[in-house]
Design a protein around this nucleic acid. Structure first.
Length: 260
DNA sequence: CGTTATGTTTCACT
DNA sequence: CAGTGAAACATAAC
C-alpha cells in the first residue's frame, strides 16, 4: 500500500536488514517486473552489496558497491521482505535476492504494477521521470511555482509526481480533508493563503503518517483515514462521507466540511 | 460475473 | 509545445 510514508517505512526496513551483504543470486519469476534485461541485473548486482538507500517520493534508490543504482517502485501492491529460509518465500515474492549469509530479500508484488530498474544517477533518473523534490522536503516556493498556470482540480495536482513526489490517492484525500478543501476545487481559484494551507497540511499528514509508521489505525482520530469508506460519517460534522471520482480515482470527502 | 483496488505510462486531443 | 483526460497495464479479492 505504498505512498510516501509506506515507502519511507520500507526504506527503514531495508536499511536495517539488507545492507552490506554480498548478493549471491537473483531470481525473477516474471520478466515484466524488470525494466532492464535479467542479465543486466545479474551483472550489476551479483557479487555486489547494498550500500545505502535514498527515497524520492514513492521511488526507492539502492546504492550498491557496483556502478549502478537499483531503482525500486512498489506499484500499488508492493513491499519488501527479508527472511531466512527459502521455505518462507512469500507467494508474491516475484523477485528474490539471496545474500551470502543465506538470507533472502524479496520484492513482493501481488498486482505486478511495481518494477525494478537500474540507473547511473539518481539526479538523472529524477529528471527523466519528471519527479519533483520529495514532498517531505519540498519548499513552499517550489510548490507555489508548480501550481502556476495549472487549471485542473487540486486533488489531481497533489497527486502529480512532478508537483509533490510521494503524494498518492489516500494522502491527497487526507491532505484536503485537513485543509477543509473540496477535491475538485480548481487550482486557479486558490488564494495564496489557500495554497499555503494545503502545503502545511501536506507536511503535517506526511509527518504524522511517518511518526505512526504508516499504520493507519494509529493515526489521530480526526484523520479522514478512519472514515475513508462508504457509510462513514465525518468526525467534525457528523454528515455522511461522500465518494466520488476525481481524475479516475476514488475520492472520499466531507461535503460541508470541504467546501468548493 | 462484475466491480474495485493505495500507481505509472502512454496516447490522443485541445 | 504544454496541459489534460482517458485508457492501458496485471491480478486478486469481494
Amino acid at each position: 500500500m505504498p505512498e510516501l510514508p509506506e515507502v519511507e517505512n520500507y526504506k527503514i526496513y531495508i536499511d536495517s536488514t539488507a545492507l552490506h551483504q554480498r548478493i549471491t543470486a537473483m531470481d525473477c519469476r516474471d520478466q515484466r517486473l524488470l525494466k532492464q534485461s535479467k542479465s543486466d541485473f545479474d551483472s550489476h548486482l551479483i557479487n555486489q552489496e547494498f550500500k545505502a538507500t535514498q527515497r524520492i517520493g514513492k521511488y526507492l534508490f539502492v546504492e550498491t558497491t557496483g556502478e549502478k543504482i537499483l531503482v525500486i517502485h512498489f506499484g500499488m501492491t508492493g513491499r519488501p521482505n527479508y527472511y531466512k529460509s527459502e521455505d518462507d518465500r512469500p507467494q508474491y515474492a516475484h523477485i528474490q535476492l539471496t545474500f551470502e549469509n543465506g538470507f533472502h530479500f524479496a520484492f513482493e508484488n501481488k498486482r505486478k504494477f511495481g518494477w525494478w530498474d537500474l540507473t547511473s544517477s539518481v539526479a538523472e533518473f529524477k529528471a527523466e521521470h519528471n519527479l519533483s523534490d520529495d514532498a517531505r522536503n519540498l519548499k513552499l516556493d517550489d510548490f507555489k511555482d508548480s501550481l502556476e498556470n495549472r487549471k485542473t482540480d487540486i486533488k489531481k495536482i497533489l497527486m502529480d509526481q512532478s508537483v509533490a513526489a510521494g503524494v498518492g490517492n489516500w494522502m491527497a484525500d487526507e491532505i484536503l480533508y485537513q485543509a477543509k478543501m473540496h477535491p475538485t476545487k480548481k487550482v486557479e481559484d486558490l488564494t495564496p493563503e489557500d495554497i499555503e494551507r494545503v502545503f502545511d497540511c501536506m507536511k503535517t499528514v506526511i509527518e504524522v503518517a511517518i511518526e505512526n509508521d504508516a499504520h493507519y489505525s494509529d493515526f489521530p482520530e480526526h484523520f479522514l483515514m478512519h472514515f475513508r469508506k462508504e457509510g462513514a460519517t465525518c468526525f467534525h460534522t457528523g454528515a455522511d462521507i461522500k465518494k466520488i471520482k476525481v481524475g479516475g480515482r476514488t475520492t472520499y470527502f466531507s461535503p460541508q466540511w470541504q467546501e468548493l
